[in-house]
């Protein structure tokens, strides 16, 4: 059974129909990439998966997103628990203006872990998990804003890992980073695959081929094609997919 099932999902920003009848099955411990030109709805769908779209004024949805068979839009779903289970890494690194330690400990503290020894353990584990422990271990009191952009993004990944999510949503996590930081994050994503289900939105088709198992191609609010990454990039079924991946538009 798939981890996430998106069924007949529609999303509107006021009158604008931004996502049209999306159906998608996302398997556990797979990396799924969402690709497509700007404004195609890939980020909107990503945000819908942990209900960050609730924050957008005028946004309404219908359809279902099933997490382990349970619709996350049901009335009895606690959105804070949902977001603990489905973590998110944003396009622009957004560490809080506090120490590295407090950044990572923020999530666990939110979920009522206050034991110092336990927090220490989580912080170290999360920073190791995000491949940044060696760079910051001597200076955990340092303000996270003073790190470089690539380091900040890995702090944000560590921060997301600290609440032990089941799924990690990544919204163009490398678009604001330089190539070296990007390759670090990409190899990190590969490592995380053993433990987490990952969905990554990317502008960069090479990135999708490098990191993902499956790829969904979006265009004007529709999923045009969703398939194994290798298949989608080598023998696309749809003409529009082919045009996009060969760089004819977008």
């Amino acid at each position: 059974m798939s981890k996430l099932s998106i069924r007949n999902f529609n999303l509107y920003y006021d009158d604008f129909h931004a996502l049209k009848d999306i159906n998608m099955e996302i398997g556990e411990k797979e990396i799924t990439a969402f690709i497509g030109p700007s404004g195609c709805g890939k980020s909107s769908l990503l945000k819908s998966l942990n209900r960050m779209n609730d924050l957008v004024e005028g946004c309404s949805i219908n359809g279902e997103v099933l997490l382990d068979g349970k619709n996350i839009y049901d009335k009895d779903v606690d959105v804070n628990t949902l977001r603990k289970r489905i973590g998110m890494v944003f396009q622009k690194p957004n560490p809080f203006p506090m120490s590295i330690y407090d950044n990572i400990a923020y999530g666990p503290r939110t979920h009522n872990i206050n034991n110092k020894a336990r927090l220490d353990e989580i912080v170290e584990k999360s920073l190791r998990g995000a491949a940044i422990w060696d760079e910051v271990k001597d200076d955990l009191k340092k303000n996270a804003l003073r790190l470089s952009g690539g380091q900040q993004q890995r702090i944000c990944i560590a921060r997301a890992l600290a609440v032990e999510p089941e799924i990690l949503l990544m919204d163009e996590p490398t678009s604001a980073l330089d190539p070296i930081s990007t390759s670090k994050i990409e190899s990190l994503v590969q490592e995380l695959k053993d433990k987490y289900t990952i969905i990554i939105v990317t502008h960069n088709m090479q990135q999708a081929t490098r990191v993902s198992d499956k790829t969904a191609f979006f265009l004007s609010g529709e999923v045009i094609e969703f398939n194994d990454t290798d298949t989608l990039f080598s023998i696309p079924k749809d003409k529009r997919t082919e045009d996009y991946i060969t760089g004819r538009f977008g």
Binding site: G87, M88, F90, Y106
Partner: peptide
């Protein structure tokens, strides 16, 4: 910045 807020609620706060 709104991104701080998003980061926080994104962790389940």
């Amino acid at each position: 910045p709104e991104s701080y807020y998003e980061g926080s609620v994104g962790l389940g706060a």
